[in-house]
Amino acid sequence: MIDQRTAPYAATILRVSLGILFLAHAGLKLFFFTPAGTAQFFGSLGLPGFLAYIVIAVELIGGIALILGYHARVAALALIPILLGAVVTVHGPAGFFFTNPGGGWEFLALWIAGLAAVALLGEGAYAVTRRGL
């Protein structure tokens, strides 16, 4: 049974935590790797370089939307393909465990599960929008 008194706060904790993770990853691409460096890395994977700029933008916008609780269900669903792309292109070949050389897809699987939970739960408490889809 779900505790209706505390569930909205649990959804908020999950939503905000995931949003912070996306902002951190976007920040890594912006300030450490740089957008041009990220585009070059995407190119080394056989992906078009411009896709890096789209990924950075989606991570930024999606992360902010999750933190604010602005259409969190839509934001969560929009962010899942970014992580699936990371699994297929970078982390999948390294195996499951994130401690493997090259980092496996274990962490990304948990992240995707968290986003799926937000998509099912909705915004939770303290959200800009309260109804979701």
Rank of each mutant, 00 (worst) to 15 (best):
Y53P: 09
L14T: 14
A72V: 06
A76P: 12
L68Y: 04
F31M: 11
A127M: 08
L83K: 02
L133V: 15
Q4S: 12
L45G: 03
L83G: 02
Y9A: 09
W105T: 03
I82Y: 00
F98V: 11
I61W: 02
V74I: 15
T38I: 04
V16W: 05
L51K: 06
R130E: 07
I112E: 01
T89E: 01
R15L: 08
G122C: 12
P8S: 05
P101K: 04
A76V: 10
G122T: 14
A10I: 13
G95N: 15
F32N: 06
F33A: 12
V128F: 07
R73F: 07
V58T: 12
A109V: 13
L51T: 12
A127R: 10
L14W: 04
R130I: 09
R73K: 15
G46F: 08
G124P: 09
G95A: 15
T99S: 06
A72W: 02
T34A: 09
F50P: 09
Q40D: 12
P93S: 10
G104L: 00
G19K: 09
E59K: 09
P93N: 09
T34H: 12
Y53A: 04
G114T: 08
P93R: 10
L68Q: 08
G62A: 04
V90E: 00
P101W: 00
E123H: 12
G46H: 11
Y70C: 09
T6W: 07
A109K: 06
I64G: 11
E59I: 02
A65Q: 03
A113G: 10
R73L: 08
G63S: 05
A39M: 07
A52Y: 00
L84F: 10
G103V: 01
E123N: 15
A26N: 03
F97M: 14
L18I: 15
P35M: 02
A26L: 02
L51G: 05
G114L: 06
L66A: 12
I13W: 06
P81A: 06
V58S: 08
G92P: 12
R130V: 11
L60C: 15
D3E: 07
E59A: 02
A57V: 14
I64E: 05
L110I: 11
A78R: 12
G27Q: 05
F107M: 03
I54Q: 06
A52H: 00
V87W: 00
L51V: 14
G37W: 10
G122N: 13
P101L: 01
A7T: 11
A24G: 12
I82T: 13
L121Q: 10
F107A: 01
G95H: 14
G69V: 03
P81H: 08
I2W: 04
I20A: 13
Y9T: 10
L108G: 05
G132Y: 05
Q4Y: 08
L23M: 07
G122S: 14
I13F: 13
A7N: 09
I61F: 06
V118W: 00
R130P: 05
A52R: 00
S17M: 09
I2R: 14
A11E: 00
F42N: 01
G104K: 00
G85I: 04
S17H: 04
L23Q: 07
G122L: 11
